[in-house]
Write a protein that binds this DNA or RNA. Structure first.
Length: 922
RNA sequence: GCGGACGUGGUGGAAUCGGUAGACACACCGGACUUAAAAUCCGUCGGCUUCGGCCAUGCGGGUUCGAGUCCCGCCGUCCGCACCA
């Protein structure tokens, strides 16, 4: 029998699919199903994690197609972004060339995996045809007031003279220059996502996103961060100097208006206007504000940062008590949340308490814990933040917290000092990026007319061609002389001198509507409504959990904007969401603790039984004369004549079961072990920097694409991380070979085989597997579907004796059930079996319900909850029969000896049969 | 600190509704085939055992005829947010 040779077979079927346009999207879908995996960033090469992601989508796409759906399953590239500029800086190339070059390579890699994709819809977000339409959307949003321009802080690198993304700031310093980053105010474009916060939040719970995992919805809920509270103002009095012009009071936001009587001071953020105002005449305050700004932004820095404050020469009057409260600038108050100012109630807020203790401010308890005495209750170093009863608070006294909240708000509203409000943690989405490689913002700035939108008929605003050497410099070439001709244009409104916007859009904008563009890509519009709505929403979206918040929230926001602009009737882009786990791998480091690639490591195992210390010593002494000291990659190797090294290797192999040795490639090109240990370290997410990425090409060369796909979906549940192991893919490869051998042994069995009849074990196994695999795929339990396929394959051993119709039924089902996982193998088998046409066009098998039920059932019998035996009864046996059989079982009888049967519990199984019998005796 | 998820053999994991704990795979071990090896095939595979059983799903309690599953309290791991008033 010919050995299954994956490479030519996979190439052959990929060519057939291409010729037959098997995966072309149907024109007018009657039964549409849109499956989409998050499109990749063209970073250079795909890794095995991509394979897992796309294999999952492919299983869904192929299964749905076989089940008669009209499937849309497209692929494209999230192609704008900073890495291209960084690569250009390092290599002296152009970001565009780097990006499109990577796309070429990665497209080839993906196509090799045999994915059922409609490549005719492929695009990259850096294509003019795509980003031009994105500019159209931007202008639509601008005209409807969804976009605004406002001032915002950026990270400014004073050495490189460039704006840095947050991830380029490390410990407050520029990643390239190492210079302390300054914060600068720039005018930037914002999408007003906060205007839609309420609906984005509501949809998480009203059933519109019922197909999303709960934890993703929870993360979005937290991110939006809705809170209900009170916005109120404290009238201010200057103790020294003067208040800023027009300022009479200090607006604050609080969620605990019930604790107003416990107020001991007011606080403002370091960048609050009031703080800045007084800093003009107070060098000490100015110094304090600078220090606050310079404070670390890392999580650790914030956690450890001490509460610090600076007293302002003003007081605020408490509307209930007329008390004058001191006003502090405090380093723990955020300008970006609420009003940037608070009232502090130290007894019931830990931060306020820490601050109050440090500056010796009063701590007055106003909420009494349920089990405490109001007369003596005091707060020590821990604020009391749980519910309780209000005390020391005049008209609120005696109320529980939940009733005091609305009462306090009502009172403040009545007094005219404020009103109950809803506040969100979510901020507007700043989309301006001071970079070249992104979608240009279609606006022209004129000193006289301000920001003038580029008319729709002048789109697209294309990126100017910039010589590659410009990217060696830091910063945005669009701002430099080289782009002067592009940038300086007459104003579209007054014809005076004006300049183009040189900021480009955040790449999250690109990925916020690509799914719609896949569904419909007309030339003159972002989408054609009827066509887009025929496919949208995406029925099944699959991607990494790392996009749980930003990408998915932005896409949801975008769809709502597009709906309001008349591009679609949908508001939610993704009906069902699945977040898959990462692929991890061991990491290896050499003696200098540098990472070493798995491709450069071989493992040695001790060949034979574990050596005793005596043996070890002897081996060490005889090291030079030992002819076969280790087995390396299943080959004999003369490792080294250095006794120390040899002993070390043996020690490690003995202790750990295996040891790693670094390989190197000498002049001859042959890879050989060198005298260097490699430490085997814990598994981690694959990343370039840790050198633990596994290339799908090497795997496909060795085992074939099918085995790689199959292994990525077996064993671990798809939402969980999976560790890449060589032995795992070897197991998958064995499966591929066994399936092929079995089908090859029954060549042509499908042709002319009659209709199977009866209820043989084989038929039951076939139909049970069909039902189980179908259910498992629908529920994303790919690991279990694969376990069933292994089980089914194992049960097909005695196939030679089976009648031809039953054999044909079993193998036909096997080929079709394997097809979503190992599509090439399935085609080869289908063809060998004599199946009609391509297996990818064959209908999905359907189980006969009558074959899913057994005539007899084996029922475990427990005595006192412990299994003691089992009985086999007819599936439709009545209760008395089952109980009698159980009580007659010899093992049961033995355990009942000398005991009285108190109760017999027989549990029926769902459709029919019996699940278990438990005999209670005592 | 807040919120969420999870803890099962040597390993990844299965157990769908509270009903036979360990499906399926990996590794290891044994056997067959072979001059030999690889590949392949077959078998054993949680621990202990006086071979009757006993003990086992992070730990300690509880509910139940029956708990990996439900409840309470710990311990541990991972993820998200994090001075959000």
């Amino acid at each position: 029998m010919a050995k299954y040779d994956p490479k030519p077979i996979e190439e052959k079927w990929q060519a057939r699919w291409r010729e037959a346009e098997s995966f072309a999207t149907p024109k007018d879908p009657k039964n549409p199903y849109y499956v989409l995996e998050m499109f990749p960033y063209p970073s250079g090469r795909i890794h095995i994690g991509h394979v897992r992601n796309y294999a999952m989508g492919d299983v869904v796409a192929r299964t749905k197609r076989a089940q008669g759906y009209d499937v849309l399953h497209p692929m494209g590239w999230d192609a704008f972004g900073l890495p291209a500029e960084n690569a250009a800086m390092q290599t002296g190339g152009h970001p565009r060339d780097w990006t499109y070059g990577n796309i070429e390579v990665m497209r080839g890699q993906l196509q090799r995996m045999g994915l059922a994709l409609d490549w005719s819809r492929e695009f990259a977000t850096c294509d003019e045809a795509y980003y031009g339409q994105q500019q159209r959307l931007f202008l639509d949003f601008l005209s409807r007031g969804f976009v605004e321009r406002k001032e915002s802080m950026v990270n400014w690198d004073p050495v490189d003279h460039t704006v840095l993304a947050n991830e380029q700031v490390i410990d407050g310093k520029g990643w390239r220059s190492g210079a302390p980053v300054e914060r600068r105010v720039l005018s930037q474009w914002f999408f007003k996502i906060t205007d839609r916060a309420e609906d984005l939040l509501a949809a998480l719970d009203d059933g519109r996103l019922a197909g999303w995992p709960e934890h993703v919805r929870q993360m979005q809920r937290n991110w939006i961060g809705k809170s209900k509270g009170l916005k109120m103002a404290f009238p201010l009095t200057a103790q020294a100097g003067a208040l800023p012009e027009g300022t009479r009071d200090l607006p604050i936001y609080t969620t605990r208006p019930d604790t107003l009587y416990g107020a001991s001071f007011l606080g403002v953020a370091p960048d609050h206007p009031l703080a800045k105002h007084f800093a003009h005449d107070d060098p000490g305050l100015a110094q304090f504000l600078t220090e606050c700004q310079a404070a670390g932004t890392s999580e650790e820095a914030i956690e450890k940062a001490e509460k610090r404050g600076y007293r302002l020469p003003v007081t605020g009057r408490h509307p209930f008590t007329d008390e004058e409260l001191p006003v502090y600038v405090a380093n723990f108050i955020l300008m970006t949340y609420g009003t940037g100012a608070i009232f502090a109630c130290p007894a019931h807020d830990q931060r306020d308490l820490d601050f109050a203790r440090k500056y010796d401010l009063p701590v007055k308890p106003v909420v009494c814990p349920p089990d405490a005495d109001p007369a003596t209750f005091e707060v020590g170093d821990e604020a009391f933040t749980d519910p309780g009863t209000i005390i020391n608070s005049d008209f609120l006294d005696g109320l529980p917290v939940e009733e005091a909240l609305p009462a306090a708000i009502a009172k403040i509203e009545e007094m005219g000092w404020g009103e109950g409000t809803t506040n969100y943690r979510l901020r507007d989405w700043g989309v301006s990026r001071q970079r070249y490689w992104g979608c240009p913002i279609p606006v022209i700035h004129c000193d006289a007319c301000g920001a003038v939108p580029v008319p729709q008929d002048q789109l697209p605003v294309t990126l100017p061609d910039v010589p590659a050497e410009e990217f060696k410099k830091t910063g945005n070439p669009l701002d430099r002389d080289v782009c002067k001709d592009w940038r300086e244009v007459p104003c579209l409104s007054c014809s005076g001198p004006a300049r183009r916007e040189t900021d480009t859009m955040d790449t999250f904008v690109d990925s916020s509507w690509y799914y719609a563009r896949f569904a419909s890509q007309p030339e003159g519009a972002p989408v054609a409504k009827a066509e887009a709505d025929a496919w949208l929403p995406v029925n099944q979206y699959i991607g990494g959990i790392e996009h749980a918040i930003l990408h998915l929230l932005y896409a949801r926001y975008f769809m709502r904007n597009m709906k309001d602009c008349g591009y679609t009737d949908r508001d939610e882009p993704f009906e069902n969401l699945f977040t898959q786990g990462m692929v991890t791998h061991e990491t290896y480091r050499d003696h200098l603790f540098q990472y070493v690639s798995p491709d450069d490591v071989e493992f040695i195992k001790w060949d034979g039984s574990e050596p005793s210390d005596g043996e070890l010593r002897r081996m060490w002494d005889n090291a030079k004369r030992v002819s076969n000291p280790v087995i390396l990659n299943r080959e004999e190797h003369q490792l080294s004549d250095d006794p120390d090294f040899f002993r070390g290797v043996i020690d490690v192999a003995k202790r750990e079961g295996r040891a790693g040795i670094r390989l190197f490639t000498p002049g001859s090109g042959k890879r050989e072990p060198i005298r260097e240990f490699v430490r085997i370290l814990p598994i981690e997410k694959m990343s370039k920097s840790k050198k633990n990425v596994v290339s799908p090409d090497a795997i496909a060369d060795r085992y074939g694409a099918d085995a790689a796909r199959f292994f990525m979906l077996s064993d671990s549940p798809p939402e969980r991380d999976v560790e890449w192991t060589e032995s795992g893919v070897e197991g998958a490869s064995r499966f591929v070979n066994r399936v092929y051998d079995l089908c090859a042994a029954h060549e042509g069995v499908l042709a002319g085989a009659g209709t199977p009849e009866g209820t043989s074990d084989l038929r039951r196994a076939t139909h049970g597997t069909v039902q189980g695999v179908t259910d498992d795929i629908a529920a994303f339990r790919f690991n279990k579907a694969i376990a069933r396929l292994y089980e089914f394959l194992g049960s097909l051993k005695g196939l030679k004796d089976a009648p031809a119709p039953e054999t044909a039924e079993a193998l036909s089902a096997l080929a079709r059930l394997v097809a979503p996982f190992c599509p090439h193998l399935a085609e080869e088998c289908w063809s060998a079996l004599g199946g009609q046409g391509l297996v990818c066009d064959a209908p999905w098998p359907i189980a006969e319900p009558s074959l899913l039920q057994a005539d007899t059932v084996t029922v475990p019998v427990q005595v006192g909850g412990k299994k003691r035996g089992e009985v086999t009864v007819a599936a439709d046996a009545d209760r008395e029969t089952v109980e009698a059989a159980a009580l007659a079982e010899p093992a049961v009888v033995r355990f009942l000896e000398g005991k009285e049967v108190r109760k017999v519990i027989a549990v029926p199984n769902k459709p029919s049969g019996w699940r278990i019998v438990n005999v209670v005796a005592g």
